[in-house]
Amino acid sequence: MKITKTVENSWQSLVDGVQAGNIRAMARLITQVENREPGWKDAMKAIYPHTGSARILGITGSPGAGKSTLTCEIADELVKRGHQIGIIAVDPSSPFSGGALLGDRLRMKKIFTLKEVFIRSMATRGTLGGMSQAARDVARIMDAFGKDVILIETVGVGQDEIEVVKTADRVMMVCIPGQGDNIQALKAGVMEIADLYVVNKADMPGADEVMADIYAMLELSSEAGQPTPPVLKTSALKNQGIRELVATLMADSTESNRHDDKEEMRIKEEIFSLVEDEVLRFLRRRWEENGEIAEAARQMIEQKKDPYSIVAELLNQFI
């Protein structure tokens, strides 16, 4: 493993370290970008020209579907095929303490010491929208390091988590038998973005019923003449169906048009998300410094004004 003795914390040395294949530099750069430490955007500007070659796969599904185990098996198979793997494992932050228990690694022990694999656990940190940008940045750092397949694993519930998988080139939805709710969860948003469905734990009873449910749903939602996404069966624990799954994930897409559209949509969303972040940060600083926000709050507490008028007045100076 190539690791230099010390890691300097300056942005340039970290970026250089990433390109030189220094694991500690990559880990530290990820931390500082994730923390949004001053200068992070300059670091990402330096990283960006070295990205674009990695394939990013999103893996989502309800808690307990076997996402982590499946991610581990996929990574293991990809390593056998000569790939360099980055894994971003997302778990929720506690909305109360801001802390997080990141446990995805529990199911990935067998790939911990493979030099081809770099795993990073990320907490959602409760920043709406910000998480998906942070995950995108981390994926780019891994890409620049030389990882050619990046797996982003996250529980597919809620807006934030769906935003995260949307940053992937391909999204895989993991379903399991014996969870009627699973299909309900699909309807709530992931349905439109999944490119591939996996029925995991397929050695358990009910797998065929889940397959049938998914097919029926896909039929309803797909337009005539359009190919429907593949549905595959796996048992991550018993290592069944993994090779077929990896082959499908790595197959080149024939739907280039659809992917171009998707690409454009993704880029637009990223720009909007970065703009939103900047604008909000700017306004927050300005209104807190000049006291306008405190004054507005006071007027509301005294019931002199409603929040809608306040927002209109605050924004008036810019529009």
Binding site: S93, S94, F96, S97, G98, G99, A100, L101, L102, G103, R105, L106, K109, F112, S121, A123
Partner: peptide, 14 residues
């Protein structure tokens, strides 16, 4: 769990 509740990000590997 205690450290999570104290606001830390805890990576647990079993």
């Amino acid at each position: 769990h205690g450290l999570r509740d104290a606001g830390f990000e805890v990576i647990y590997t079993g």
